[in-house]
Nucleic acid binder design. Sequence first.
RNA 1: GUGAGCGUAGCUCAGCUGGUGGUAGCACCGGGUUGUGGCCUCGGAGGUCGUGGGUUCAAGUCCCAUCGCUCACCCCA
Length: 421
Amino acid sequence: MKIKAVNGFKDILPDDALRRQHIEQTARDIFARFGMQEIRTPILEKTELFARSIGEATDIVEKEMYTFVDKGITMRPEATASILRAFIEHGLHVRQPVHRLYTIGPMFRHERPQKGRLRQFHQMDVEVIGANEPQVDAELMAMGQMLLDTLGVTVSLEINSLGCPACRPGFRDKLMAYLNQHKESLCPDCRRRMNVNPLRTLDCKNRNCKDLVQDAPSILDSLCNDCRDHFVSVKQTLDLLGVAYRVNRFMVRGLDYYTRTTFEFITDALGAQAAVGAGGRYDGLLRQLNGPDLPGIGFALGMERLVLLMEQQEDATPPKPTTDLFVAVLGEKAAEHASILVHRLRKLGLTAAMDYSGRSLKAQMKQAGRLNSRFTLIIGEDELACNEGVLRDMNTQEQSKFSLSLPMDEQAQHMTALLSA
RNA sequence: GUGAGCGUAGCUCAGCUGGUGGUAGCACCGGGUUGUGGCCUCGGAGGUCGUGGGUUCAAGUCCCAUCGCUCACCCCA
């Protein structure tokens, strides 16, 4: 019986890793333009951290966490809680009023895997702590959009406001009243949701519920003055920045800590997993974690979902890595010469490779082609005899002489000059 | 936790109503080119048909079980 990877956990093979490197590099570059600094936190945290931040009654905490029950620690199901914990633990707020942080790494949730959803998945997560201005909300969305545009994926941005502790309870009551009137027509799931988290009935996929909820009271009509002003400013700033969006009053979030602005980058190209990225404001969460009373906002992008989208949009295939020089050798003396030269070239910063197995020249040429090498240096008996290697341009097929009689350092210098010309 | 579908070569897959596992494609190795890749051509290697039972003269094919995977529900990035 072969040992295979654990269900929901995936190997990232070289081609896939290459694409992810490109995504991460692009992200880091764009995040930096927005003043984001990287932070890295441990993958394991006290279970209590997630219970208190994400919410005891959420599916994530209730049944999806990988928890070492005997140790009271859990593999992080998301990044925000860990970042806030680190922020509070190290008292970062005393250094400067606003922190802009990001992290990239694996998260773990014990869900049934399906397309675009794994048990170990990877997120790029951004958090701005200490700023409550609506311009920051818009700026974050603009940044996310910029990244997705740069990566060549097409998504649409949907935004909503969930209000705050001052106005959400009022809305919740109004919604409950409406739902109770139509209880009979709701799907079983929604009847259950009414007790757990009535807002979730708003984004039920059941056709009946969808129709029913169209006439439900809108949260946007229930916002308090501060929340309404905030939401208006967010929209105005998005307009100013030229970021397209659609207000979706039915969009809600699964995590308890969200307040005011929430948003999702969605696509219809990923089957059931519509959200490529999502986030929102979480004013009050830091205080709830016994930290300073600072506002925060953040969002996460799902790496696997991004990869799937980019694979569908073939144009974004990353170019194969190239090798500057492959040295094909015949005989031990040639191999010895080549191994020294290859090492010198690598020291000088070139990508160089050779074959050690003594295979036929044809096989070595084939290998050079596989490695996408720009040039191949051939050293055989004849070349050793006259101290002149054959340097072949793999694209033009032109071949020229390369002197093997100079001191190795000079040969390496010479080769570097030839290849960079 | 619930439902459906699928497990044949490293990968993608043929295999009709049971009758000897495919000249299949990609990839790999070798020859055609006494020492020159990509294209072409010829050849080669590679499989306990997921596993275990059952029906049958005969099972990749039918039945049962089991394991694995996938998709969907739930929920979420």
